[in-house]
């Protein structure tokens, strides 16, 4: 039989596990791309240990200008890869790298770091 401390630890662990799952895989806030300037919609993406914002909504059918600024110096984040679009760029710390994306068909396009640990998603909506 479990004593009361053990019951406490086990229930605490179950709660911690549930919180971990929710924390990493739960719903995330979405950010909309800025309205079109000169025909393209613009998004500022910060990279500092993760992507901010990490859910970006853009309009399908309109080219996208992604201004990426990496502020951290972790080796993990030094590359950004948009695998579905065949785009990858090296991100020097402290310098804005602009990635021009073509008009997208509706759908979700994931972007990750070179090692696939940091993740974000570009969602093209009509």
């Amino acid at each position: 039989m479990l004593d009361s401390i053990e019951v406490g630890v086990v229930s605490g662990s179950v709660l911690a596990a549930a919180a971990t799952v929710l924390f990493f895989f739960g719903p995330r806030q979405r950010t909309r791309a800025r309205s079109e300037v000169g025909g393209a919609q613009e998004v500022d993406l910060m990279v500092d240990g993760g992507y901010r914002p990490d859910r970006i909504v853009v309009r399908a059918g309109v080219p996208v200008k992604l201004n990426v600024l990496r502020t951290d110096r972790s080796a993990c984040s030094e590359q950004i890869v948009l695998g579905d679009l065949g785009v990858s760029r090296t991100l020097p710390t402290g310098r804005v790298v602009t990635i021009d994306l073509p008009a997208l068909t509706p759908g979700a396009y994931d972007f990750t770091c070179g090692m696939s640990m940091l993740r974000g998603r570009l969602i093209a909506e009509v």
Binding site: F24, G49, Y51, L118
Partner: peptide, 15 residues
């Protein structure tokens, strides 16, 4: 610091 930055983004890495 890097771990904190990652957690703020609800991301998780080595740190």
């Amino acid at each position: 610091r890097a771990a904190w930055a990652a957690l703020r983004h609800r991301a998780a890495d080595m740190n």
